[in-house]
Design a protein around this nucleic acid. Structure first.
Lengths: 331, 331
DNA sequence: TTTTCAAATGTAAGAGCTTACAATCAGGAT
DNA sequence: ATCCTGATTGTAAGCTCTTACATTTGAAAA
């Protein structure tokens, strides 16, 4: 079934059929009617490739995220997809893994696909020299690129991110004001946002004339048992509170406290990040920073559409996080 | 940059360039070399639409799932994507929502896209009359359809699913043998797999000459607070154990136990489903059925590839689940 | 040297759509 | 009746690739 068949059956030219398919106004109601009927009867679907060839777009954007199995990214992808759907766009998904080489490959594959935009979720590019970065900047020459919770300078590159610096600054300050002096900072990557979080932590301590004890900054995997075990191995280390850059690590800290018989929040306060389902699952429930994934995604898509519509949009949009207070802290 | 430019620069015809791009063996090493060099220098990428038009495929499969934000489906999508990647296929994702009308729309949109296959995750079609079903069967005339954890008869439709019936049968039996007599069954949908789970529950009770008390079968949302509150509202109901068809509900039951001061597992045993991260997050940790999402997905993709390769594959593949025993039960 | 044949390459016809431009048509103005 | 106009429709030239078939080439066989 091609456009020619429909044209023949409807007794019109293929141009007219195409106009009907694309909702052009320059077709009389009568023929529009006829063509629609024939299309319905024959169950005709325009060939997407030919359409894409002619139009130069297939209304599709690419989403690259390290791992959709991660609940935070899963939520993000879900929001993105829904919002894109609302604008009539489809999304093709790549789970790139966290490795730079893998991500580079994902981007390069995606670039072959005549997409309308590229969305990178939870980007964790470490150094400016990284191959992905140069590749992304090249890519941006062709289509707009959006980083969600990441930062990259460059033409046609836009960033939408939570204000992680401020969020951690604020919660650190709250802990200090609550009398905590040895705040353990658990982080899991060298990403831009992990860096910003750590800066917030250090700045808040400095603002209160507290020294940053390097031993209190621990790198660990975002996994409950891994974090628990890591902490159990640090027996020399004393701390009265924990700020984790992911909820999984925070729950690991709770498990550690349970093993050691530490009362939470009295003897150990714990703060998580992302306000995932884990935070209301554990015991006690976790105080956690909600970095507004849903809002970030909506903002991203709205901005993208504005851009595709020819409007100018800000290069960087920063959205304030919310601290959700629960039983794992006493402020 | 089109294939013509490359041909001109390399001093060959477009056919030769195309052959090089597609790895045809009928090109001399020398010209292959030249063309490759020119392509690299010019950073040429074949147009995916034109390619698709010519080849009739773009190596892409569609994935429909109700909600990637759900950790179980997120994991499934992640596995599917990775496995497809391994075969050089891309995936385009639709989060259809749980509503039949929405899912129908998703499928119909997807069908316009010249995909190589359609994968439905966690399908929860209720009745045989549903519009999605007829639509899917029509779709199957064009491309193969795979249901992951769902069942649908029809030509060119294949199902890969966990043996939920047996899993629930077995765990119910374990509870009975552990002396439990009033086993609450928490379920959240009228999907095929929810039905099978319930059948397993009822069959196991019957096998041990225990009556099925209809009041002990509760429908509830897969959400920790929703389940907790639901149980708190059922004060007349007595039960000594809970089997939930999702981990979220099981954790809700644990929260309920905490509120009521019931000791788990002594006074209340709780079994969850899917062995999600929640199950090692809560306190006590949750005994949960692992329905082998990873294996299901790998099986699905391997089968799909075998099918595309012209081989015959089974219409239905059932994979045994694993019970992961933790502290919320005492068997 | 001529013949033969396979390997290498080129030509051109699609694949199914969009759209600029041309053609047609109906009806009002002259 | 003739001309003009705007609305509608058709024609044909792309868009970029694949590939069947034709052609050329070069070397081995005769």
């Amino acid at each position: 079934m091609t456009i020619y068949d429909i044209a023949k059956l409807a007794g019109v030219s293929i141009a007219t059929v195409s106009r009907v398919v694309n909702g052009s106004p320059k077709v009389s109601e009568k023929t529009k009617e006829t063509v629609r009927r024939v299309m319905a009867e024959t169950n005709y679907t325009p060939n997407a490739f030919a359409r894409g060839l002619g139009l130069g777009t297939m209304q599709t954007v690419g989403i690259v995220c390290p791992d959709v199995a991660d609940p935070y990214m899963a939520k993000a992808v879900s929001y993105l997809e829904k919002n894109l759907q609302g604008y009539g766009y489809d999304c093709i998904l790549y789970c790139s893994g966290y490795d730079d080489a893998d991500r580079e490959q994902a981007v390069s594959l995606l670039l072959k696909k005549q997409l309308d935009a590229l969305l990178l979720v939870g980007s964790i590019f470490s150094d400016e020299q990284s191959a992905v970065l140069t590749q992304l900047r090249e890519a941006a020459a062709r289509i707009p690129i959006f980083l969600i919770n990441g930062v990259l300078s460059g033409d046609n590159v836009y960033c939408v991110l939570g204000d992680d610096y401020q969020a951690v600054y604020d919660v650190t300050e709250e802990l200090v004001l609550a009398g905590k002096r040895r705040i353990l900072f658990l982080t899991n990557s060298s990403s831009y946002s992990a860096g910003r979080k750590q800066q917030g932590y250090e700045a808040a301590l400095a603002a209160h004339q507290l020294d940053v004890d390097a031993r209190l900054i621990l790198h660990c995997e975002n996994s409950i048992p891994a974090t628990r075990d890591l902490l159990l191995r640090q027996r020399g280390l004393t701390f009265d509170s924990v700020i984790a850059t992911e909820d999984g690590m925070a729950v690991g800290a709770l498990k550690y406290a349970a093993v050691c018989g530490l009362r939470v929040p009295d003897e150990l306060s714990v703060v998580g990040y992302n306000n995932s389902e884990l935070s209301i699952c554990c015991e006690p429930e976790l105080t956690s920073v909600d970095n507004r994934g849903e809002l970030l995604c909506r903002t991203t898509i709205d901005s993208l559409m504005a851009l595709l519509d020819g409007q100018t949009i800000p290069k960087q949009q920063v959205i304030k996080c919310h601290l959700i207070k629960r039983a794992s802290t006493d402020f």
